[in-house]
Design a protein around this nucleic acid. Sequence first.
DNA 1: GATTCCTGATTGATCGGTCAGTCAGTCCGG
DNA 2: CCGGACTGACTGACCGATCAATCAGGAATC
Lengths: 225, 225
Amino acid sequence: MNDDATDHGSNLDAILVAAEEEFSQRGFDGAGMKSIAARAGVSQALLHYHLGTKDNLYSEVIRRRSDQINAERQALLDKIDLEAPDALEGVIDALVRPPFGPAGGGRAYARIFAGLVVGRERDRALVREKYDPIALRFVEAIEAAVEGLGRKGAGLGYVLTLGALISVIARDGRPERLMGLSENHLMNQDETIAAIVAFASGGIRSFRDGNVHVSEKSHPKGGST
Amino acid sequence: MNDDATDHGSNLDAILVAAEEEFSQRGFDGAGMKSIAARAGVSQALLHYHLGTKDNLYSEVIRRRSDQINAERQALLDKIDLEAPDALEGVIDALVRPPFGPAGGGRAYARIFAGLVVGRERDRALVREKYDPIALRFVEAIEAAVEGLGRKGAGLGYVLTLGALISVIARDGRPERLMGLSENHLMNQDETIAAIVAFASGGIRSFRDGNVHVSEKSHPKGGST
DNA sequence: GATTCCTGATTGATCGGTCAGTCAGTCCGG
DNA sequence: CCGGACTGACTGACCGATCAATCAGGAATC
């Protein structure tokens, strides 16, 4: 019946919201079905009725958000003129902005998202399934936006950019702590996004100057640089 | 089977090695004291005898590696002439190289290390305790190495650089997958380090050009696109 | 009355942690 | 050289708690 991302009157949505919070705060193994049920105000058995297993509940939580985030990413990416001189900045912005916005689901999913990137096998499979397809499109866009970059530089740039993104999306406090700012003087969202865009763009452009060598030619055993 | 650099007859070291592997593969909550004991070839009770609680075992595993990594980082940092034009590259290299080397303990600890950066409360406390002090020294070094960067740009640069680092340290396969490389053609260590250094240095230098605004004085311009 | 939604009660497994006690040395007075 | 006291390393058996998952059945809706 309902393959859509969001609700109808049932408790299903409340369960997914509660599960998102629980997984965010305690991780997959730390989360408890009982605890999620309590958060949602339903019985534990209802979780199994709707979602089956804990694994499937986790997948469903991630699917909802990744669908929204990737749709917004794709929409932003489609608007970019890859011939423009600041095309790279636009591509990076399209990549990093959606997770901060309403599609990203706020702080709760942000931490799950960050965990996915450095996660164990279960998370890896989910990333491959939910995020890799659009990741490849961004890699191609980065390659097209920067002359003389090449596929390897673009792929590497994508991965490093995503790492930079999660380092600020997952952690409250540490960036500000290291920057010497007071507790109640947090970076706002636009400033954060702008900083990541500048950092990643600058980093990727530096690859043009022959800084990235991924032993390309033939020999299976790479020589040291 | 597992001979580590530090070994003195007792089973304590075998326990720490086994725990490192277990935590790396399953995370803190996913790891089991029984499973760790089995890996180490000792009884579960011995873990509690030597280490007390699971929390303490975890801390001990991290302390061993962080001590080595940070000592090596500090040593490399001390050699750098901050007045040199490529001082920034040297600082970044000193920051990212040790986790890849023998002090980093190989793949096993690498994943734990990555998890720390995006981790939950327990991990946060460990990072504050074991990594923040030297992190501050690197922030200062970055600030000193790049003229006109400022403390905020340096702090932000540090955090984003660390994010970039963990994105490649934690994940096998995805970088190569997105770069269009075959499975058995992985990036080697020196190439990886060189790429991160180039990326981070380029990114941080781009902050000089007024790309980083952390609302303190004046008001930032809108950072969109 | 069939279908969907939902729950209380309960399952067996596994969790981290505890405890009494074994075993191999070591130290010491004689 | 002797034994007994003492210690640190180590184990098997076991604890209560908690885990995800199951199931029979109640309540509501069509």
